[in-house]
Amino acid sequence: MAGKKEQPQDIKRREFIGSTILAAGVATVAPGVLLTVANATSEDEGANSEIRWGMLIDSNKCVDNCTACVDACERENGIDLLRRPQGQGDEMWNAQRPQWIRKVKLRDRQTGEVTNLPMMCQHCEFPPCVDVCPTGASFKRADGIVLVDRHTCIGCRYCMMACPYKARSFVHQNVEQQTIRAPRGKGCVESCNLCIHRIDSGATTTACQDACEKDGHKAILFGDLKNPESELSKALQQKSSRQVRADLELNTGVRYTSL
């Protein structure tokens, strides 16, 4: 008798267990689904292979002693937040701190012609740094941007050995402050990523280009190499440009005129 009486309660218990499991299941899965749905905005779509981001640098317009592009890059990517370790000398600090973009002044050995230019990652179509990286941390996005995945970089520095442009920097010291735009970690390698955070949120210029333009030099032009209508493509069609170390056949995304 007692068993009959308890039966409805037992069913209730089963229902309870069932609905609890269901609720727990929904609670577990839903945030993931929501996050995925929320993520599917235009901002976070995968890189588009119809685009190849690149740059044209007019060395004639690049001014001696101007470091607007370098300063802007350091601000944009939090390089200026790095503090010199105590006891570190000037020379070593300069040799060890990250430099994503640098100014170089050249003189032709034969003609004496002097050229100024900014040097950074050339975003090669066939990047040697990507070839040599043992873990695949150094990679090229579908839109041509070459960058380092800080989660899988083991700090072996083989990419730095392989890069023909000395474009990469190793983070030698503890990182106390950084921006969310450019995460940084001690013991990992980094380099210019064409202001990927700006591009991915719809911007069409890099920090260095903006700074150069603001100072009235307009030596840097960023854009899509694959779109024949882009300002960059048109400029490249009109002017004769060249790649640094074209002999290596890396098909760089960054080109120079008057070099």
Binding site: V70, R102, V104, L106, R107, D108, R109, M119, R245
Partner: peptide, 13 residues
């Protein structure tokens, strides 16, 4: 990096 040119200055050696 620049065959035929000499480097007058660079912050990155």
């Amino acid at each position: 990096l620049f065959p035929g040119k000499e480097v007058l200055s660079s912050s990155f050696y």
